[in-house]
Design a protein around this nucleic acid. Structure first.
Length: 329
DNA sequence: AATTCGAGCAACCGCTGCTAA
DNA sequence: ATTAGCAGCGGTTGCTCGAAT
């Protein structure tokens, strides 16, 4: 849906009196209510997005245009993906951040369905936490080297482990290649890893070599503690070789003939009449009758997501890295 | 069982750049 | 050429909830 840029007037049927009333009333702030969500979803379904200030007024929302835009883009938008960040996405974020820094929206463009806000939060809560644990600045060369030469190769390793059992040859950024045999398949192609080559991922070949060297150097680094096969994620936590999103999208496809990957997807057909405001389901889920959005939240047993990063480093890893940092100083 | 603490995340704020008038 | 309005971005805040004590 294209956003119409520039100054435009409200095209809906709100009167000047309504507009004046809206201006008079105090603007709401804080968390959005279900009712507000519905108003916004319904309005955008009928009129499209963009022109956020007039949209807010005409939709009868006592919110700023900014607030409406944010709510729509980060939460209500049909194609927004929620839930744990996959291994591939983690790798993409690390690589793109090393390339572009805090250009969250630019990074988000390469992660379909992910919002800049979500990526930013992920970085701040997960990645920066590890920098803290290593007692180094997240922007320091040491930490960046750690990411590039240890963290990212390890992620690649985990991705390969997760993909293990397929008879196909898996190529991931930077030309890491593995051939394995298995019965499991990973259909999570929402993040097209090979496409990363389009933005210059050859550097990761060097990363692989450096990582190999690092593994030799790190006496604590063993196959056991670096990669507990398919039962751990890239950071040592539980992960299934099958992406959560595989199941996730399979469920969706049953409910959505268009195979829209978003559980929140709604049909812009004005079905709001059946909605009970007392319902506990999310307004977006309402548009997919029979689909419980909450229940579609990624299964942590199957997902490589959120905690994935948390356990990237075990105690020995952190100790080792701290020693390396001390040596570098 | 009550309280404290910290992680995660949704939402807000301030700024910048673009565009129409 | 100027200016007002707007969209979008990145940084920050504050709320919620679960874990730890």
């Amino acid at each position: 849906m294209d956003v119409i840029k520039g100054r435009t007037s409200c095209t809906s049927s709100c009167t000047s009196e309504e507009l004046a009333d809206n201006i008079k009333e105090d603007l709401r702030r804080g968390p959005w209510t279900v009712e507000e969500d519905f108003k916004l979803i319904n309005y955008i379904a009928n009129h499209g997005e963009g022109r956020w200030n007039s949209l807010a007024r005409c939709a009868g929302l006592k919110r700023t245009g900014k607030s409406c835009r944010l709510r729509w883009l980060n939460y209500l938008r049909p194609d927004v993906r929620r839930g744990n960040i996959t291994l591939e996405e983690q790798l993409m974020i690390l690589e793109l951040h090393s390339r572009w820094g805090n250009r969250w929206s630019k990074i988000a463009q390469h992660l379909p369905g992910r919002t800049d806000n979500e990526i930013k939060n992920y970085w701040r809560t997960r990645v920066q936490k590890h920098a803290k644990q290593l007692k180094c600045d997240v922007n320091s060369k040491q930490f960046k080297d750690t990411m590039r030469y240890l963290w990212m190769p390890r992620l690649v390793e985990r991705i390969q482990a997760a993909n293990a059992a397929t008879t196909t040859t898996t190529t991931v950024p930077g030309g890491f290649t593995t051939t394995s045999t298995t019965t499991a398949t990973n259909n999570n192609n929402m993040v097209n890893i090979p496409s990363m080559a389009n933005i210059g991922y050859n550097e990761l070949n060097a990363t692989a070599a450096a990582a190999a060297a690092a593994q030799v150097t790190n006496s604590n680094y063993t196959q056991e503690n670096s990669s507990t096969a398919a039962s751990s994620d890239s950071f040592g936590t539980h992960v299934s070789p099958v992406s959560d999103l595989t199941d996730y999208y399979n469920i969706i496809s049953v409910n959505d003939d268009n195979n829209n990957p978003n559980p929140d997807y709604f049909q812009p057909s004005g079905q709001l009449g059946n909605y009970s405001e007392t319902s506990l389901i999310s307004p977006a889920a309402y548009f997919n009758p029979g689909m419980d959005f909450q229940s579609l939240e990624p299964n942590t047993q199957l997902l490589d997501g959120g905690e994935a990063l948390d356990n990237l480093w075990n105690v020995e890893d952190i100790w080792f890295l701290q020693q390396q940092f001390n040596n570098m100083m």
